[in-house]
Simulated scan of single mutants.
Amino acid sequence: MSIKEKPSPNWITVKNLRNNGKEPKSITIDYNGNVYIDGEPFDESNSRYENLSVDVEKHNRISTGEETQKMFKKFQEASEGEIVTIKDEKDKNKREKTTIKY
């Protein structure tokens, strides 16, 4: 890809290599979480394909590797058998905690 080319807005594209007409030719999910079946926006209530359901979870953060970097840093500092908390986030609905025993 050259510098002038605009990157594709698509995140994931699944292509059906053996199409018999009962399944979609392609399923595409863009970076915003929108789903397209055969190039058209997917509407589960008005689908051409029977029993097809697509569920995309939308998250507001992307991992940039901070946790992995923190794991390596703590590995150098920790003693053998020590349990270290790498991440501890609390929300009103969930809690996400990452701990490692070195």
Rank of each mutant, 00 (worst) to 15 (best):
M1N: 13
I3W: 14
K4R: 14
E5C: 06
K6W: 06
K6S: 08
S8V: 02
S8K: 01
S8A: 05
S8Q: 02
P9A: 07
P9V: 06
N10T: 08
I12S: 04
I12M: 02
I12Q: 07
K15F: 06
K15L: 08
N16K: 01
L17N: 01
L17K: 00
N19I: 01
N20I: 05
N20W: 06
G21W: 10
G21M: 11
K22V: 05
E23L: 02
E23F: 00
E23Y: 05
P24K: 12
P24E: 13
K25E: 15
S26F: 00
S26H: 00
I27W: 03
T28D: 10
D30M: 02
D30Q: 03
Y31Q: 12
N32D: 14
N32A: 14
G33Q: 08
G33S: 05
N34E: 15
N34W: 07
N34A: 11
Y36T: 00
I37W: 01
G39F: 02
G39Q: 00
G39V: 02
G39M: 01
E40I: 05
E40K: 14
F42Y: 09
D43T: 02
E44Y: 07
E44A: 14
S45P: 01
S45V: 03
N46R: 09
N46V: 03
R48E: 14
Y49N: 04
Y49W: 03
N51V: 05
L52K: 04
V54T: 00
D55Y: 08
D55V: 09
V56S: 05
V56C: 00
V56R: 01
V56A: 03
K58I: 13
K58Y: 03
H59G: 09
H59E: 09
N60H: 08
R61C: 04
R61D: 09
I62Q: 07
I62T: 11
I62N: 07
E66D: 14
E66H: 08
E66A: 11
E66K: 10
E67Q: 08
E67K: 06
T68M: 12
K70Y: 11
M71E: 13
M71I: 15
M71C: 11
F72K: 14
F72W: 10
K73A: 10
K74N: 09
K74E: 15
F75W: 13
F75T: 09
F75A: 15
Q76C: 06
E77A: 11
E77P: 01
E77D: 13
E77S: 12
E77N: 07
A78H: 02
A78D: 03
A78G: 02
A78K: 00
E80Y: 04
E80G: 00
G81P: 02
G81S: 06
E82L: 00
I83R: 10
I83T: 15
V84Y: 02
V84L: 04
I86M: 12
I86T: 10
I86C: 07
K87M: 11
E89V: 07
E89R: 06
D91W: 04
K92H: 12
K92N: 14
N93V: 08
K94S: 13
K94N: 11
E96T: 14
E96M: 08
T99N: 08
I100G: 03
I100A: 13
K101I: 05
Y102K: 15
